[in-house]
Amino acid sequence: MRLLKANIFRAKDKLWLCIWLAGLGILWLWNTLYLNPAAFARLSAASLNTLFVGILVVFLAFLFGWLAALALHFLDETRTRIPYLFLTFLFNLIRSVPQIVGILIGYVILTLFIQGDILRAQTAQLVWMSFVISVFVFLEVADVIRERIAFYMKSDFFDAMLCCGISESRIINTEILLKNSRAHLLHKLISVFGATIFLLCSVDFIVSVGLSTDVSLSNFPTTLGGLLATMDSKQDILAIGTVVTNFRNFSALFFQHLQGISTAWIIVFTLLCLYKISNGFVKRHRL
């Protein structure tokens, strides 16, 4: 109990991670008992797809961010001006596009791919969606990496290691990023995961409610945002409103309107938990 107190209750990020997992676990158990099998399969697929995209975006954003930061750093250090300016311009161009607009453009391209039978497999479509989202969020990771490098370059330990003949790439990757910036990077990746869930659900919802007749979610892999926009889920959400005027319907929410409410709850609860985990992480690591 003492160990649990020290590890979980004092570390708010760990506590909220447990709450998140427990919340999702309880919901899954409840839905296995009371949600009809077809809706349960849809909800499970949507949740897993969303989770898959979230994790893949975290991985890709880290990879792109790391490559971009290192490329800019070494081009700057070696005073290779033209490639440095070109990359800076390119990144600033990406930065200037609002994330949601950029992702919508990516969806248009995905539709074209689907129409042209280029991307048939659902996994390939999810990978494309992850790639598009990561293109518009990786610069946040790159910025953190560059800030960390710049911070340590001003310190004596960077120069002292250089004087000892330690290679600059080892100083940056091992000594600065791995040993001194893990917490900062992990914190950024948690926020990237949260942003991905939010962006994915928002865009899928926008697209599915009929932003354009050319782009339709009917051929896209199911995600939580897409599932939320289906007629059944919408009616389930509207059912919450009826509880205000007729409280007797309250218990029906948990037995008859599970699909929409579960979908909405997973999204909101996940975002809340990620926010809390992120805050707890900052506090625990004194970032």
Partner: peptide
């Protein structure tokens, strides 16, 4: 690290 090296004065700052 090959021909010359320098030991910095503040060990606190010179070591990771």
């Amino acid at each position: 690290g090959r021909r010359m090296t320098m030991v910095f004065q503040h060990a606190d700052e010179a070591l990771n």
